[in-house]
Every structure is written in structure tokens, then in C-alpha cells.
Simulated scan of single mutants.
Amino acid sequence: MSARPVLTSARLVTAGAVLAAVVALTLAPRAIAWPARTLVLDALDHLPPSWSALVFGAGADVALNVAFFVPLGAAVALLLPLRWAPASVALCALVSFAVEVLQAGIPGRVPDADDVLSNTIGAAIGTVVVIAMRVAARGGRAARR
């Protein structure tokens, strides 16, 4: 078992920054959030054609919701011990649900249950990437012994 702590300063700062970005952009008035949305869509527009079809197959809003929660799922998974890392999907789903509930009171924002599903899929992707990397790193350390 590794002696390295899970809750390092770097991991806490990264997770806090990602959560702050998610909260700021998902709860910001439409006038602030829309330019950020446009920037992300412009960046995603530079993907190879085969990736664009995969990313935008369900529509730009779904793609953005998925992409937006990948970093949050990864950041939360990094804060948890490996055996508890899958719980980051549930924690991110709760964050997404809370965001949608809060959006009901923000003019110009429209809460949508489908967004919770898309966000949770993004969190699951981020979580799986972190788990795979941690398992691979653990396997590499075991092989060197």
C-alpha cells in the first residue's frame, strides 16, 4: 500500500478550482455564461471530423455538459482513496442536481433534468480516466519491486 497521502495540497487546490469554475459558469447569468460557452464550442470545433461527430452527435449542449464535468469527476476522484474513487460519480451527480435546482431562481437560466444525466456521464468519464491511471501507476510500482 502507498504511503503517499490522498489529500495533498495540490489535489485540494485543483479540486477547489475546478469546483469553483463549475459553480461560477453554471450559476452565472446567461450574459456571462454564454461567451464562455461560445469559447468552448469554438475550441471543440477544431477537433478532427471523426471526433466532432462523436462529441456533437447528441448536440452541442449535451457535449458541453459532458465535457464540463469531466474535470470535476477527475478532480474529485483524485481526492478519494482508490477504492472510494467511484463515489466521485455520485458526488458530482449531487453537485449537478444542486446546480439545476439553483438555476431555477436565476433569470435566463433553465434547469433541465437531462443536464444532470449529461453532467454525470462527464463525471464518470473523468473518474474512469483517473482510476485507470492510478491502477496503471500502482501496477508499475508493483512490477518494479
Rank of each mutant, 00 (worst) to 15 (best):
S88W: 06
A74N: 02
C92P: 09
G73M: 13
A93C: 13
P71Y: 11
V76Q: 03
L64Y: 07
V40S: 08
N65D: 15
P86Q: 13
L47F: 14
L79R: 06
T38I: 10
W51A: 15
L72N: 06
A87S: 13
A87G: 04
S52M: 14
A43L: 14
L72H: 02
L94I: 12
L72Q: 06
N65S: 12
F56R: 01
A58Q: 08
V66E: 05
V70G: 00
L91I: 15
D45E: 15
A58V: 07
D45M: 03
D42Q: 14
V40I: 15
A85R: 04
P71C: 08
L91K: 09
L94H: 05
F68S: 00
A87L: 15
A74C: 05
F68Q: 02
T38D: 05
L80K: 06
T38Y: 05
A53W: 03
L44C: 01
V70E: 05
C92L: 01
L64S: 06
V62H: 09
H46L: 14
A87C: 11
P81H: 11
A85E: 07
G57C: 07
C92Y: 07
D61R: 08
G73Y: 13
V62N: 00
F69Q: 06
L54K: 02
L78F: 09
L39Q: 14
L94N: 02
A77G: 05
F69V: 06
P49L: 11
L47E: 05
G59V: 01
P49E: 14
S88K: 07
A43D: 03
V70N: 01
L78M: 15
R83T: 12
L41K: 07
L64F: 09
A87R: 03
L80A: 05
V70K: 01
A74D: 09
D45N: 14
V76R: 04
P49N: 06
A74Q: 00
P49H: 08
A85V: 04
A85L: 06
L44Y: 12
S52R: 15
A63S: 11
A93R: 03
G73V: 03
R83D: 04
L79W: 02
P49A: 15
A67G: 14
A85I: 07
L78H: 04
